[in-house]
Design a protein around this nucleic acid. Structure first.
Lengths: 107, 107
DNA sequence: AACTATACCTAGCAGTTCAATGTATGTCAA
DNA sequence: TTGACATACATTGAACTGCTAGGTATAGTT
């Protein structure tokens, strides 16, 4: 039914290069704590996406800390488009169903 | 992360009394086939909700077919409110994150 | 010295949803 | 009248997600 972590991660990375730990916090803060995926969710998704060729990574040392920065490949960009469309579709359908009343009167 | 079947089922039943098989098709048709939960999803949810006291059921015979009709209890109505709020929150947060750009240049 | 924050990672469980299958009845066409 | 399809109920077992909890290592703070 879902795939939200993948979607959000791809979206963030399309806007700018980021590293795992940063993504975890970006999701938290940008969603006002409504969504809070732990590292145990984010890291595996990053690895899987990289293996599928949707992301590319490179190590960078900042303040003697080793970070793995990720960027979106063309494949990943397409993937993002697909997931976005699916999500919009789904959210739209649910929204519509929750709004409508369709009471007994329509027989 | 989810709970969509529960949400949609409660919503449909709050509008009018329905039976399982009918719910399966209502979700399909009202969502224009975007959402299609099978019977293996709907029936267990109905049973669980009834056991929690969120639904009440009664047998009815129509054209020599035995149907189990469900209605929402006050407990179920509260449950629906809760799930709706959670969903709206979640969908809103995701929507917001997908729209925003936060790019390096703010393009 | 201990605690918190940064930064990476994995394993295993738990919950959800799906696909498949099964029963039984009714209807309609070949 | 037989076979196919629709109605209507139900369960089981697998698959997939995502979460909790753990583990390593460095740096800064108290």
């Amino acid at each position: 039914m879902n795939g939200v972590p993948e979607l959000l991660i791809l979206k963030l990375l399309r806007d700018r290069e980021m590293y795992g730990y940063e993504i975890v916090q970006a999701i938290r803060s940008q969603s006002d704590d409504v969504i809070a995926f732990g590292e145990g969710v984010v890291y595996p998704v990053l690895h899987a996406l990289e293996q599928e060729g949707a992301l590319r990574s490179r190590r960078k040392n900042v303040n003697s800390r080793s970070r793995v920065y990720y960027t979106v490949t063309p494949t990943g960009a397409r993937r993002l488009e697909d997931l976005s469309a699916i999500w919009a579709n789904l959210a739209g359908a649910i929204q519509k169903m929750l709004k409508g009343t369709y009471a007994k009167t329509t027989a």
